[in-house]
Amino acid sequence: MSAYTALTAAGFRAQVRDKTTVFFTFAFPLIFLVVFGLVFRGRDVEESGFSYLSYTAAGVLSWGVANAAVFGIGFTLMQWRSDDILRMIRMSPAPLSAVIGSRYVLALGVGLVQSVLFVGVAMMPGFGLVPDSRWPLLVPVLVLGITTFLLLGVIIGSVADTPESVAGIANFLMLPMAFLSGSFFPLDAMPEWLQKLSMVLPLRYLNDAVSAALVGRGDLGDIGTGCAGLVVFAVLFGAVAARVFRWTKTS
């Protein structure tokens, strides 16, 4: 068995055994969907003609997938470094690519299951989300999004040394980003300067691309722009992650 396969299998077993984490990973975005869906059911956003669900469903899905990627790898790297697991991996023939690659595959799997559950619930009577005909483009968009936010999680997991610091840094970044990127309410309702500020946030690009692919709020150009923005942030986060990654608490 290769190092990559062994690490992936071990990571999967660890995730499945942690019932609480599994529950909140998949249930948390659904809770937001249910709350927003019931509160704004049947209401349209002025002038756009799109329902609130068309805005919030795509935004909450983007936030949920990104959040899972950031927290998943962040906590794992911190814990493995604290328990000297990374040091032992470093002394083995396993390359760093196997460590990150195994978590990447798990993050993609989690994101896929999250998306299927989320869209399935959103299409139920009472919510009535109707996916646009270009919804298959959602797959590459989510892959790019997961890649980008996984690398952000690597940065957080490399600089944080305790579970509290991982949670603090991740929440400090992800919660304001969710509000400023339009995950929970339409960007059109924000002041123009905040809309411009959101262009420097990676979640904005994921939201826009998911919205255009899933519900048709935008065109292929919006999907392309969103994907290009995610690629830029992935390269940036990857470069930073390579510089700050630590095998042990001291190096």
Rank of each mutant, 00 (worst) to 15 (best):
A6R: 10
L7K: 03
A9W: 12
A9I: 15
A10S: 13
V16P: 00
T25P: 01
V34D: 06
V34G: 04
V35C: 13
G37Q: 07
L38M: 14
V39S: 06
V39D: 01
E46P: 07
G49V: 10
F50M: 07
F50K: 05
S54A: 15
T56Q: 12
L61Y: 09
S62Q: 10
G64E: 02
V65Q: 04
N67T: 13
F71A: 06
I73Y: 08
F75W: 13
T76M: 12
R81F: 09
I85K: 11
L86W: 10
M88Q: 15
I89E: 13
R90E: 14
M91C: 14
S97K: 11
I100L: 15
V105G: 04
G109D: 05
V113P: 01
L117F: 14
F118C: 07
F118Y: 13
V119N: 00
M123H: 00
G126N: 08
F127A: 02
G128T: 03
V130D: 09
V130G: 01
P131F: 04
S133G: 11
R134A: 12
W135I: 09
I156F: 00
A160M: 11
D161Q: 15
L173D: 05
L180V: 14
S183P: 11
F184C: 04
D188E: 15
D188C: 02
W193E: 10
Q195Y: 01
K196G: 10
M199F: 06
L203T: 03
Y205E: 02
L206K: 00
A209C: 10
A212F: 01
A213E: 01
L214I: 07
V215H: 03
R217C: 05
G224K: 06
V231W: 08
V231C: 07
F233M: 10
V235D: 05
V235G: 03
V240S: 00
V240Q: 01
V240F: 07
W247S: 00
T248N: 10
S251F: 12
S251P: 00
